[in-house]
Structure formats: C-alpha cells, structure tokens
Amino acid sequence: MKIITFNQKKTSKIALEFDEIVPNTVMDWTKENWDAYQVPIGNSRFPITDFFDIEIEGEADSPSQVKMVLNGDYGRVKYIGFRMTDGEIEVNSNADLHAGAEMSGGLVTVHGNVEAHAGREMSGGKLEIMGNTKEFTGASYIGEWRGMTGGEIIVHGNAGKQCGECLTGGKIHVLGDCDILAGIHMTKGTIEIDGNVNRWPGGQMKNGNIIIHGKVGRLLEGFVEQDIVTDPEVDGVTYPGRYIEYKGDIALNGKGTLLIDAEKNRDRLSTWIEEDDEYNAIRVYRNQ
C-alpha cells in the first residue's frame, strides 16, 4: 500500500486542477517527480510543492494500492479524482467542481461539501460525499444524452438541482434533500432520496427508478398514480414501508417508476390538492 499525503501550505483563490494527478497516473512517482510537477492554475502552472507538503509512504504495484490523502482546504481544487480508474482518494475538507468526474473505478471520499458536477459521467467506482453537494450530481456533460453509466454516489447531505440528469446506470443515494428535477431525462439506474424533494422529480424520464422517502412537492402531469405498494423491491433491493407508485413520464411515453413514501405524502392519496404556496412550504434549503 502506498499512501501519498498532501498537507496544505498555501491556498489559492484561482482554482488548482488535479486532473493529472490521480492514483493511476502517480503510482510510480517519487519525490523527484513531485518536486518537478507543476500544477495548472489558470493559464499558468506552478510547482505543486509551493502549495503542499507531499509525503509518500510505502510501495505500490498497481493503482489499487495507492491512496491519496488530502489534508487542508480543497475548496478550490477542481477535478479531484478525474478519470481515475482505481485506488483511493480521501479528501479531509470541502472539494471543488468535478470531484470524481468520469471516474471508472476506485473510491473517492470527501469529508465535506462538494461543488457542482460531482461524479459527472461516472462509469464505475464509488464517490462518497459526507456533506452537501450542488447541481448536476452524477449528471452528463452538457449535450450528452448518456450520463452516469455505473458506480455509486452517496451524498450524506443535500443535493442540488437536476441530480442524476440523464442517468443511464448506477445508483445515486442522497441522504438529505434534493432540489428540483431530480432524475431529469434519466433512462436507467436508480436514485434514492431519503429527504424531501422540491418539485418535479423525474421530469421527462424514460425509464429507471426514483425512490423518495421524504415529502415531495409538486409532481408533473406526466406521472400517473398506479397503486400503493408495500415493501417494493427495486433492482434486488427491498425498501420497507408503503409507497405510492407512479409511472411516467407519459408526456414522452416513458416507463419510469417513481416511488414516494405514502405516509409522508398522505395528502396525495385523496384527491389532488393544489396548494399555492406548497413550493414555499417545503422548500429545500441546501445552502451550505
């Protein structure tokens, strides 16, 4: 096992970019390599040692034996774990944009909040965020209709708008609340949300599953109530409790499944109640 520890000396307002240093690329790097490496900042590059003390312990034969431990403040370090294939990265602070983006294997753990685009277009591995994150968690690159295809994202806090946009596989689990349009355009995969959801979950979804354990704001016309199900099983996982099952989005002949907790959304079981300030009443505050 090779442990590479970064201890921060200095921060920069202009974000550093870590896309070139992930376990699979730095596996063989010695102290000399690190001393020579210049990290991109804006249109320039600066020695990484200006910003971090880097300690290397142990040896590794394969990327899976590499662990990078990032201590300090990484709120302005973008692309942590970008395109990593294996190994482990542990961030003991916040992280900036694109944490875990396009990763295909390994583990990224962030013990803080993460900016937008966390886990964008992941195809494997696991991204665990202990705090909150912002828009486009596990989403696709703009214009791309194939988003995250595999792997797992766990957000212990809240997630922002359009979580799991264009999801085509894998699983996103948000333990907190979600803002509007979770699972928009999704075609496959599963999104599980433990908290409340603001509005319109599953807009224009073609297929896949969204499970919401909290209260849901406004639903789209495209979702048709099917039944109340008890202990439903989705992709081999059983979710105990009673859920209202919706199918949709019929506005595009979609066949997705939306399960929302029956107890917390009891008002939906009777006739539809249009509450004007429903949106405000259950508004999700995800500001960090």
């Binding site: 224009q204 016309e221 019929i250």
Partner: peptide, 25 residues
C-alpha cells in the same frame, strides 16, 4: 410564475393523446 415546466409537460402529455389528471395545471 414558475409554472412553465409543469405547463409544457401537460401540453406534451396532451399532444401524445393522454388525458390530464388534474382540473388545472
């Protein structure tokens, strides 16, 4: 205000020949 998305979703559903479930969107 802010009802645009829901409104167009309903229009799409009707274009596809579906019946609206609510009295108003």
């Amino acid at each position: 205000q802010n009802g645009d998305y829901g409104f167009y979703n309903a229009i799409r559903a009707v274009i596809k020949g579906k019946k609206l479930q609510s009295e108003s969107v």
